[in-house]
Nucleic acid binder design. Structure first.
Lengths: 347, 347
DNA sequence: TTGTAGGCGTTATCAC
DNA sequence: GTGATAACGCCTACAA
């Protein structure tokens, strides 16, 4: 009782394989009567074309590979994933998904597996690390590739990222305008362990952009103090780092966090100390989530256009796949500072 | 410059296709010298086996299809997705992903596409609707299938769900013990439009289980008032429904919500009315999220074992695929009531 | 130990 | 308008 093949359809309809194929795929010359007979036969025996065989012949799989760094827990990446999957489906493509937990080794393996499965193209969020030769060799073999969320200077591929710098700068301006003079930035990065105030050697471009924006904002002011903490992505470290900020004798009046997890750590630490967000201490973070709006006060946030990014990633990739154009684009999408109640007015 | 094939490796190494294949796959008798020669040649020309051709021959794809209802936004489904993808990878399988937005039509199309792509098995969260014949025909054709989060009475397939009823009942008990006498349950279901207090005809089994638990808890008490609101899944309706509860002259002292989105709606409405959670009004919800713990007060929650569920789904599916056993299991995983500060002590 | 050859299910080219 | 046939890349039974 194996699955029926085109051969079965052909014999059921009393025609040849070739005719059956033509009838079902609707190409070439063929009489309408035969077409309906074949279709009826196919229906009757429950024929489902074997996409593997089709791919084998066509050399295309109508599948794209998605290699994402982590945790669908992260608002940005889970919404991006949904957007990519849905857009791809609408365009007739399916998505094979991998996550790497920010581990280049897993990333490399994922790319190899996807290459072997002959996906038509790849969307990758590269992990924060050195050693992306596997991506370079993809571009060399002309495999359609779109890199999202981060750019990788060494890799000549289309990238789609967001302009976090300008909104981070705007956020600083906004806080300063409200009278804040002591700011702190709490940055999560997989490239440190524990926490530290020095800027790490290696940052991914998304984080770097936020750092730069913050820096630009603070440096253009006089009499501003800006503190930094870079920490790894474990919840414990985040809490320690947030506590360090809040317990300092010179507590910053506003804390910027680089992602939702860090914002949560700050919320926890602040609550434990009976401080009130938007009054005793202020908070701004990156990547909007329904939670940031649901809680009170709402958290001011730098919104990134995740749906647009997801759609663009797929359409640009499909364009590469279907036209085999090798144009490399570097797309930077605008971000937006959305003001809610989490920055106190000190003026 | 097409991708090198086994033939290319063979000629590069000066052997036949068969020998090259044996050398690379390591089977049959073959001299070590030939093996290393072939491997060197493969390496040199950058040979990557074509998994499509392998699948074609083997009749297996080492791919599983995941059809999930919606929104990776939902904590439960995004963590489940991650668990499934990671477990599958560890077992040597890749995951083709679809989401249906609770639409049976899309679900049906997804299953057809996945069948045509000859996935070795499927993990499905069936949408809340009638008409799952496509799943029944899957079981008839012996396609390995695991249904998660919900059971579908008509479909003879392994299912993995969670025992929400008992924790919902425990949550009611707990609230009653703290002195609550007027409870309300705010339930999101795609099967209504707008909101209503009557129990809808059609509920998915997960929601039904929560309803039953709540009912069991309230009915065993005397002098308890229990209100219901069933509403669709749009944020607007959720807000209206939550407002209706909070603005009622007979405001419940504790609100149970069926998911995180509804909990967020309650939080918003409550904040707008300057009420304090855990004091003026109480809240309990289903499915833990880092946010429920990060905010103040933490929200008491019914935790479902999502990681365990994800792992089980994959291992049970793989067991079906690799042993072609057709044993149907109905697995119910325990849940846990985690108490935080969101239920006021009225006693 | 290695080579030859057939077939997995499709599609498309070439005859008739 | 339809049928026979080759080819996609791989694996493996069989032959040498």
């Amino acid at each position: 009782m194996a699955k029926p093949t085109l051969n079965d359809v052909a014999s059921a309809a009393g025609v040849s394989r070739a005719t059956a194929s033509r009838a079902l795929s609707g190409y070439g010359r063929i009489s309408p009567i035969t077409v309906s007979a074949v279709k009826a036969a196919a229906e009757k025996i429950g024929y489902q074309p074997n996409a593997i065989a089709q791919s084998m012949r066509a050399g295309k799989t109508r599948t794209i590979g998605l290699v994402i760094i982590t945790d669908f827990t992260n608002v940005f990446f889970n919404r991006a994933t949904k957007g990519i999957v849905d857009t791809a489906r609408a365009m007739g493509y399916q998505v094979l998904i991998f996550n790497t937990n920010e581990d280049v080794v897993l990333e490399r393996e994922a790319i190899i597996t996807l290459t072997q499965k002959r996906v038509d193209g790849l969307i990758v969020v590269p992990s924060t690390a050195e050693g992306h030769e596997h991506l370079i060799s993809l571009t060399k073999s002309r495999t359609p590739l779109v890199i999202i969320d981060r750019v990788l200077p060494g890799v000549k591929a289309t990238s789609i990222t967001t302009d976090d710098a300008s909104s981070c700068e705007a956020a600083v301006d906004s806080a300063v305008a409200l009278g804040h003079r002591h700011l702190a930035f709490l940055v999560a990065t997989p490239t440190v362990s524990g926490y530290q105030s020095d800027v790490p050697q290696l940052l991914n471009s998304a984080i770097e952009s936020r750092v730069k924006g913050f820096l630009a904002g603070t440096q253009k002011q006089k009499k501003i103090r800006a503190d930094w903490i870079f920490c790894d992505e474990s919840p414990e470290t985040a809490l320690e780092a947030a506590a360090k900020l809040c317990d300092s004798p010179m507590r910053p009046s506003v804390i910027f966090t680089s992602n939702n997890d860090m914002a949560q750590a700050v919320l926890k630490v602040v609550a434990e100390r009976d401080l009130i967000i938007g009054k005793d201490i202020s908070l701004v973070t990156v990547d909007d989530s329904t939670w940031l709006e649901a809680i009170y006060p709402g958290i001011t946030v730098i919104q990134r256009p995740v749906d647009e990014l997801a759609q663009l990633a797929v359409t640009k990739l499909v364009a590469q796949m279907e036209t085999s154009s090798k144009r490399v684009e570097t797309i930077l999408l605008p971000t937006k500072l959305v003001t809610r109640g989490s920055i106190a007015d000190l003026s």
